[in-house]
């Protein structure tokens, strides 16, 4: 009995003294509580650092014809070579780099657009809200992949255009999310207090309101990141994304369009496919754990 109360006391201690712990520390502790998310973070960390270190660790130049074509994995070519004899491992490392770059940049652009439009719509309301939200609905209701394909056909396909295209179609979700939060925050007393104190609009929007809606934005952005990487893969697979000879995870899968490759040369499409799956699943798990960890009403 005595032992029980003692252990209970111990258990409750962190909850009773949240003041002793900084907010970020608390979030981190709740985050690693999710085993899957912790593993995902490690997996993603390995993939990202391998991609970043590609120029150092890649055994060959990804564009160079390094050996005989269509070789299965061997001692000198760990993942084999492609149809024109380039080293698959080196290409895979550089491809991951490009795909992550596209994902991160597209997410950054769509988050920036979404946050800005959401803040304006939510804070000002009225006509601004009406126009912005109808425009958002419009973008949302468009068949997504079709829009991207058309855009990719109009603009010259390539790294920059794919980043811009994905960045400009992924923002509506964030805009809606931010708008909803701002509608609530606008009425809080601390925002009213700032207004009474005569603070300028930029202070109220970016210093009072935005920090209080960062957590949901962060969670949503992780799913946008996963989606962007998938969309890049889909577009490149269809030949409208990143253009060869630059390797991306999507255009490496391009080869799998041929039945012979699909059935007899699995080393050409299996590794990039697996990497895409790993990245997307890891990001989604991390997003889930972040949502729980950042929830102010969550337990310890």
């Amino acid at each position: 009995m005595k032992k029980d109360t003692l252990s209970e006391k111990k258990k409750h201690k962190p909850a009773r003294h949240p003041a002793d712990e900084s907010y970020l520390r608390l979030v981190f502790r709740r985050f690693v509580h999710h085993r899957l998310a912790a593993v995902s973070l490690i997996v993603l960390g390995v993939i990202v650092s391998a991609a970043l270190l590609a120029p150092i660790i890649a055994p060959y130049d990804p564009q160079d014809i390094a050996g005989p074509f269509a070789q299965p994995p061997s001692g000198s070519f760990w993942l084999g070579t492609d149809q024109i004899g380039r080293d698959m491992l080196s290409r895979l490392l550089y491809a991951t780099r490009i795909s992550l770059l596209v994902g991160v940049m597209a997410t950054a652009i769509s988050t920036a657009i979404g946050v800005l439009l959401g803040l304006i719509a939510g804070y000002f309301g009225g006509a601004a809200d009406m126009i912005i939200m109808r425009f958002t609905d419009m973008v949302m209701s468009f068949p997504y992949i079709l829009l991207v394909l058309v855009a990719a056909a109009i603009f010259r396909p390539g790294l920059v255009s794919i980043i811009l295209i994905l960045g400009f179609v992924d923002w509506p979700g964030i805009a809606r999310l931010v708008r909803g939060n701002v509608l609530g925050l606008r009425e809080t007393n601390f925002v009213k207090g700032s207004l009474v104190a005569g603070m300028p609009l930029r202070h109220i929007l970016f210093s009072e309101i935005l920090p209080n809606t960062v957590a949901p934005i962060l969670v949503y952005a992780t799913s946008v990141l996963a989606l962007s990487i998938l969309d890049e893969a889909a577009l490149s697979f269809l030949g409208q994304g990143v253009q060869p000879p630059t390797a991306s995870l999507g255009n490496m899968l391009n080869g799998a369009q041929s039945l012979t490759v699909l059935t007899t040369q699995p080393w050409l499409w299996l590794p990039p496919g697996l990497i895409i799956i790993c990245i997307v699943i890891a990001i989604n798990f991390i997003g889930d754990a972040l949502r729980d960890a950042l929830d102010p009403n969550g337990g310890k």
């Binding site: 809080t188 007393n189 601390f190 207090g193 009474v196 104190a197 005569g198 920090p211 209080n212 102010p296």
Partner: peptide, 23 residues
């Protein structure tokens, strides 16, 4: 107007929602 606004201040009813929790 901004100068005069600072002269007219307010104390709110609910002390829990009147301070920004992130600051």
């Amino acid at each position: 107007m901004r100068r005069i606004r600072t002269r007219l201040q307010m104390i709110f009813q609910d002390p829990y929602s009147s301070l920004n929790p992130r600051k």
